[in-house]
Amino acid sequence: MKKKIAAAATALVAALLVSSCAQPQTTTTGASEFPTKPMNMVISFAAGGSTDVGARLIAKGLEDKLGQPVVAENKAGASGQVGNSALVSAKADGYTVGTVSLAGTLLSYLDPDRGASYKGDSFKPVALYVQDPQVFVVSPNSPYKSLEELVAAAKADPGKLRVATSGIATQDHVAKVLFEEMSGTKFAPVHFSDGAAPATTAFLGNNVEILITNVGDVKDMVANNQARVLGVASAERNDFLPDAPTFKEQGYDFELASSRGFVVPGGTPDDVVAKISDAIGDVMDDEETIKQLRDMNLTPDFLGHAEFKKLWDETESSFSGVLERVKADL
């Protein structure tokens, strides 16, 4: 816990340094006075989900830090695409902030079939507040105790072991294809287009051998001895699953998380972006906010606008490299 806060604080200091270097003394009056009227937050997922609850928590904190009401509105649909479209058509003045799930947003505009009305430069990343790493889990009764054993079995009989994902061309599915290419394996996909709950049910009912999902979704299953984690796709072990090894420890340079953050429309002035980003950083310094996020099984992790942009670009190039092969993996 303390480590996380320290990390968040370090990240914040870094973000402050970056932002102050970026625009020395030339802050326009617009930014120093911003905001002078209530702000809107477009939440691109349905009310009640963890994206919604997390975003509303940050919105409440922002109200305190910026001194203006932040009015949240849910625009759910098509894995965030409806909300994203609403955001990019808003005025680029910083008064409309939107939530993004990085993978969902990237996949929506990288895939021409989705007919998205926006591209990468339609957004300016503001801040990231949650990174929920991908995990590969098997049943506690499974013969595979480590990634090594799983990979050996998959190589012996390619395409036999079944992997449940929460739908075709979702982040879980990208994770599957990325790992296959990295390890030289092939698994049979079972896509549950209705999302994580049916996929988890099929996993618990022993209809598939492997489930790809996020730490937040398996934390309780692991505690209840319903699942065994073979690998966590983060640089270091996750606080929720201290006993679970990372992919890195087992020799696979594989890092992928469900990243949730805030964006503004592409033309928003940089100093306004920096101001909102810093304010979110302040909110993420608050111990109570961190605790509430963790209570929802989310892994709090703050990145300022510059680092978020870097992560965005890296993830985009890694996704666009495999998207064709992901879509062919039926």
């Binding site: 649909g77 695409q81 479209s85 007919g115 739908g167 075709i168 896509h191 287009s193 879509k327 039926l330």
Partner: peptide, 20 residues
């Protein structure tokens, strides 16, 4: 909406409101 088999949009006429 998006078909669960191939992930391709069906009868959405290019409208993202019909993807779901």
């Amino acid at each position: 909406g998006i078909d669960p088999v191939a992930g391709a949009p069906r009868f959405t006429f290019g409208s993202e409101h019909l993807l779901d």
